Amino acid sequence: MADLVQGSKELTRKLQAMRDAAAPILRPELVKAGNEIAADMRVLAEASRRTGDLIESIHVTGPGETTPPHSTDGGQRVAGEFEVLVTAGDSDARHAHLVEGGTAPRMHKDGTTTGTMPAAPFFNPAWRLNRKRLEQRMNRLLRRAIREASQ
Rank of each mutant, 00 (worst) to 15 (best):
Q16W: 10
T61Q: 10
I37C: 06
A126Q: 13
A45M: 05
N35V: 03
A93C: 09
I25A: 10
E46L: 11
L98T: 06
R106D: 03
T61G: 10
E65Q: 14
A126G: 10
N139Y: 03
D3K: 02
A126D: 12
R137H: 12
R50S: 15
H97G: 03
A93V: 09
A93N: 04
R147F: 08
P28H: 00
G34F: 04
E56Q: 14
G34H: 07
M107F: 06
L85G: 00
R77N: 07
D92N: 05
D90P: 00
A39H: 11
Q16P: 00
K14I: 09
A88Y: 11
L11H: 01
T113V: 13
Q151A: 13
N124A: 15
R133Y: 01
D110I: 15
G62Q: 12
L129P: 00
A119Q: 11
M138I: 13
E65L: 03
R106A: 02
H70R: 15
A23T: 10
I55D: 04
T66M: 13
T114K: 01
T61V: 14
G102K: 01
H95R: 00
T112K: 12
E29V: 09
S8T: 00
P125F: 09
L129K: 14
F122S: 08
S8F: 05
A17N: 03
G102L: 03
H97D: 05
M18S: 05
E83P: 05
T66K: 10
I37G: 04
A149G: 04
E65R: 09
T103N: 09
N124R: 15
T51P: 15
A96Y: 02
G7C: 07
V78E: 14
R27F: 05
G75Q: 12
Q6H: 05
D20N: 01
A23Q: 13
V31Q: 00
M41H: 09
M1E: 04
S57Y: 06
G115L: 09
E36D: 07
H97Y: 06
I55G: 04
R143Q: 15
D92W: 02
E29H: 13
A104E: 08
L142C: 13
A21T: 01
V31C: 00
G34Y: 08
L134R: 06
R137F: 04
S91L: 13
V43N: 04
P118T: 07
E100A: 02
M41Y: 13
R77V: 05
Q136F: 11
M41L: 07
G115H: 02
F122I: 04
E148F: 02
H108N: 14
W127R: 12
N130L: 04
T72D: 08
Q6K: 11
A47C: 00
I58S: 03
P68W: 08
G89W: 11
R42P: 02
E56D: 15
R50Y: 15
K109A: 15
T12W: 10
N35F: 02
F122V: 01
G102S: 05
V31I: 09
H97K: 08
D40S: 15
P125H: 10
Q16V: 12
L54W: 06
R144Y: 08
L15I: 11
I25G: 01
P24S: 04
E56W: 01
E135V: 14
A79R: 07
K9L: 08
P69F: 03
G64V: 12
P68N: 14
A126P: 01
T12V: 08
Q151Y: 08
L129S: 11
P28Y: 01
D90F: 00
Q6I: 11
E83T: 14
S8I: 03
